[in-house]
Amino acid sequence: MSTVASLAQAGHDRAAAAVARVREAAEGVFEALREVRDAAVACALPAGGTRRPVAADLAALRPLLWARLRGGALSAHMPAHLPALIAGIGFIAAPGLLADAPWYLEWWQESPSGDPVQLLRDMDPASSAFYDYTHWDWYAGPSSGAERTICGPYVDYLCTDEYSLTLSVPVLAGGTFAGVAAADVFVRRFEAAVLPALRAIPGPAFLVNDEGRVVASNTATWVTGSVYRGGRGGEEHAVRRVGDLPLSLVTAASA
């Protein structure tokens, strides 16, 4: 094999390794969300579906949510070389699902003390501070039929003031949309998980979501949060889908 061909093969192998690293990091979070989804279905169909659920039924989710915030996602779903990613996680009820709370979210997040804390928002539609979560992409995606949604990166001013990603999946109870299972991941943690593999690729390499927003990058040319709409100045890129996730790896065409 020629030197040029050997270099091309090495670049291809490193890109494939980066795709695998991104996939296992994201899949670990989505696997935790599938657990929350399944548990939420049980909560949304109390007594075999003979009555409407109430907010108190969702308290049964708390041990699972707390475990994921305390690193359970790392031990149960992720290889040891990946950091614990989840900073917030919960179930967001479809409006009208609960008999006693037309709008409700069972959401828990990290705190400096180390103990999970519940996020409390104004759920009164008549209030000027009403939190209408249905407008957010992480909710709108699953409610419109997307099996897996990745929203961001964005600054999460409502919860943590951190640059974040939100991953979410729909929750169906009895064939009806019941809400969303979602998790927040700090971008700095996701970058720590995937950047070593991106940096091993010769030349520029960056990860984008389905909207073209850069999630992580090994180059200052394409910084996290910027929007990719194709190469600049005649650049040619190769785009590799990360399995069936709403993410793609973009590299130089030669990689």
Score class of each variant (00 low, 15 high):
93 A>E: 04
122 D>R: 08
77 H>I: 00
110 E>F: 03
158 L>G: 05
74 L>Y: 01
103 W>N: 10
99 A>F: 00
142 P>I: 12
154 Y>K: 03
88 G>D: 13
158 L>K: 05
113 S>K: 12
103 W>I: 02
148 R>G: 01
83 P>A: 13
153 P>M: 05
117 V>P: 01
135 H>L: 13
107 W>P: 00
77 H>Y: 15
161 D>R: 12
93 A>D: 07
119 L>Y: 07
112 P>F: 04
127 S>T: 05
140 A>G: 11
107 W>M: 09
105 L>M: 12
119 L>K: 11
115 D>W: 04
129 A>S: 14
141 G>H: 09
124 D>R: 07
83 P>T: 09
105 L>C: 05
80 A>D: 15
150 I>V: 15
97 L>Q: 08
158 L>C: 06
130 F>T: 05
118 Q>R: 14
145 G>V: 06
71 G>L: 10
110 E>L: 14
99 A>D: 09
151 C>G: 00
132 D>Y: 09
118 Q>N: 03
137 D>R: 14
81 H>D: 15
158 L>P: 00
86 I>C: 09
110 E>Y: 01
102 P>W: 03
154 Y>F: 15
161 D>G: 01
150 I>D: 01
119 L>V: 13
143 S>C: 12
120 L>N: 12
87 A>S: 15
145 G>C: 07
127 S>Q: 05
91 F>R: 00
80 A>P: 15
121 R>H: 12
145 G>P: 03
115 D>P: 00
144 S>Y: 03
73 A>Q: 14
104 Y>H: 15
81 H>M: 11
156 D>W: 13
148 R>N: 02
149 T>Y: 12
124 D>Q: 09
134 T>S: 14
124 D>M: 06
76 A>I: 05
117 V>I: 13
85 L>Q: 08
111 S>C: 05
144 S>C: 05
103 W>L: 08
80 A>C: 10
156 D>N: 13
154 Y>W: 09
89 I>G: 06
134 T>L: 14
158 L>A: 13
76 A>V: 03
92 I>L: 06
130 F>A: 10
155 V>P: 02
102 P>G: 04
137 D>C: 02
122 D>T: 03
88 G>A: 15
112 P>N: 01
